[in-house]
Structures are given as C-alpha cells and as structure tokens.
Amino acid sequence: MADLAKLPVTIVTGFLGAGKTTLISQLMQNPGGKRLAIVVNEFGDVGVDGEILKGCAIPDCPAENIMELANGCICCTVADDFIPTIEALMKLEPRPEHIVIETSGLALPKPLLKAFDWPDIRSKITVDGVIALADAEAVAAGRFAPDVARVDAQRLADESIDHETPLSEVFEDQISCADIVLLTKPDLAGPDGVAKAKAVIEAEAPRSLPIVEVAEGRVDPRVILGLEAAAEDDMEARPSHHDGHDAHEHDDFESIVVNIAPVADPAELVARIERLATEQNILRVKGYADVAGKPMRLLVQAVGARVRHQYDQPWGDRPRAGRLVVIAEHDDVDPVAIRAVLAPETATAAE
C-alpha cells in the first residue's frame, strides 16, 4: 500500500496520437471528486496540449493547476524543470489531491520513475500508477515500427543482434512500465483489430496487465486513479530496453514548427497533411489553424494520414496565428519539403 501521507501522481504515457490529451481532458471534467493538477511535457516548443487542457479547466482543476514543460523531456531536465514544477504545485492553495503527468509521446516512462527518487521529493510524492495508452488500430497494424517486416527479417538473419527500431522500443518500454493499458479508438480498429492489438500488448507485457477499451477518453476515474502502485519502488518489475544506460537520447526524433497562413477551407489543410504523411513519412502533426472568416481557431491533430480537426475556442484577443508542430523520425525530416507542403506561400517567398 502506498503511503497515504504522500501526494499521489499518475503518469500517463503512450505512443504518438494515442489520445493522452483527450483522456486527461475527460478526467478533468470527471475527476471523481479529486482536486487535480496537471503537468504536460511536450516534444517541441509549442504548448498545444497545455492550451487544450487549460481550455477544459474547471474549479476542481483550475488553469493555474496546469503546468507545461515544453522544452525537453522531463527525465532529462529533472533538477531544472521537473522538481521545481512539482514543488510549485504542492505549494498551491488549496493543495492538489492528485497530480497527473502527461508525458511526451516520445518519452520513455522508466527514467521518469527514477526522478521520483530525488531527495527533494521522494518523501512527499508517490507514483500512484503508470497508465499506458495504445491506439488499437495503430498497434494492430504494427505502425509503432516503420517497417516491421524488415526488422523481423534482420533479426531472423542474425540471432546474435537485436535490430529494434526506435518506435518499437518506445512502445515496448511504455507497455512494460504500465500498471494498466487503455486501448483507445476501438471503433476505428473494429473487433478484429482490437483482438489483434490486445494480443500484441499481451505478448509485449512482462507481466499480466489489465487492458481496458476506451473511446474518446471516457473512463471511470476509479479505474485509473487510486491504484496505489508505488511504482517508484517497483522498478525491477518494469524492464526497459535502456536498463543500465545512464541516459537516453531523443535524437531519433525531430520536431519542426511551421507557421501557416490563414486557410479558406479546413479540407484544404487536411489534404496537405495527408499528402505530407504519404510523401514524408510524418508521424504526428498537431497545432492550430486560422480559418478565414471564422471567429474560432481550428484545432488540428493528425497521426500519420489520419487527420482530426475541430473548432475549439474563440481567438479572442490572441493573434490569429496558425502554427503546426510536425514530428518525424530524424532520418525522415526534410524541413524544406515539409514547409513546402504546409506553408507553400512561405516556401515560395524564400526562393
């Protein structure tokens, strides 16, 4: 049992586009009577997820309880960013009753667990649980690895080496560290896809894990809060590809920020993102667009060629500036080509 005097922290991890922000937005609306605080760790320098969550703020989780760490992985900036953020949240009045940390989609959760052993906070907080989100359709299709067949062929050709791709390692480490797995977007995967995704997760998990299907982030808070896992004391049961390494690198991935001009029709922007995913092997696109003549900003979220968009908030007094974050594996990034597709007017002016 976790020490009830400690402030419980839930870590929400998951592959790119698995639905972490949607889950936390729903949790903020239905916190099970708990006063929440949220820490958002983004990959890149645009606080998209933080803005989304602040737009969902309610009395049990006001905007001042939502903090962003937008430059660098939490576990790589423990002393400079993570510890001060946790300490600041604990000094809030009224004090939060539960902290939820949304990690970057590229983050490895186990190094973050190690951060909870820091002397400044280890006697004050405990990891109530690690929640891993997995996109049912993507897992069933094997998209956590760019070319699964090629990786398997390499392993078969040489049994003495392990040719894991960065994406598959991220996925496996997140599952291995979890206390519960939420299988998201089951409607897109269908029954066969859900069954296949569950089989993949069960094969990767180092121990038996509950797997719960979740649509649109809706889950009873009692399922994911109050697990009392004390995960910081249970790291041996959470194996990682990076065990024994002093640090981990994010050089396998890169983010590009693209400022985009106002668009006349959201469908035009969707078509550009779909083209980008096909031509440039882009993993993730997220951000905002200014649609001409519309008083609200357009929230855009894409996983590969699957694009979702909705008007989320009025622009109000904020500058009507469209901006997208594009994430890809390092070897696939071509900033010039990316900007030529998403912001052709800028690319033409630069020529």
Rank of each mutant, 00 (worst) to 15 (best):
L167Q: 11
R122S: 11
A197P: 05
W118M: 11
I121M: 08
E159K: 15
D173H: 00
K114P: 04
A195K: 12
P191S: 14
L112R: 07
A149Y: 03
A140M: 04
V127F: 01
L113H: 06
K198H: 09
F116I: 01
A205N: 05
R150T: 13
E164T: 13
I121S: 02
L108P: 03
P191Q: 12
T184H: 11
L183F: 09
P111C: 05
A132E: 10
A136N: 08
L112S: 08
R155F: 09
P146M: 07
F171M: 09
I101E: 04
A197T: 00
I175M: 04
I131V: 14
D117F: 08
D179C: 05
V127E: 00
A107V: 01
A149T: 07
V200W: 09
P186H: 10
G105P: 13
S104C: 01
D120A: 15
K124F: 02
A145S: 15
A189V: 08
A138D: 03
I201P: 01
I131E: 00
L183T: 05
G129D: 03
I121D: 00
Q174V: 00
K124A: 04
E202T: 15
E202D: 10
A149P: 10
R150H: 13
P111E: 00
L133H: 06
T103M: 07
E137L: 06
D117M: 12
E164W: 14
T165H: 12
F144G: 04
R155Y: 03
E202A: 13
E202M: 10
T165V: 07
V194A: 03
G142S: 10
S176R: 05
L156Y: 08
V151Q: 09
A134I: 01
D128H: 08
S123L: 04
A205T: 06
S160H: 12
K198W: 06
T165Q: 12
C177D: 03
Q154P: 03
G193I: 06
K110L: 02
E159I: 14
F144Y: 11
F171T: 00
R143Q: 10
S168Y: 13
I161Q: 15
R122A: 09
C177S: 13
A149H: 09
P186V: 00
E172W: 06
A157K: 11
G129S: 05
I131P: 05
D147R: 11
A138H: 10
I131W: 01
E102Q: 10
D147S: 07
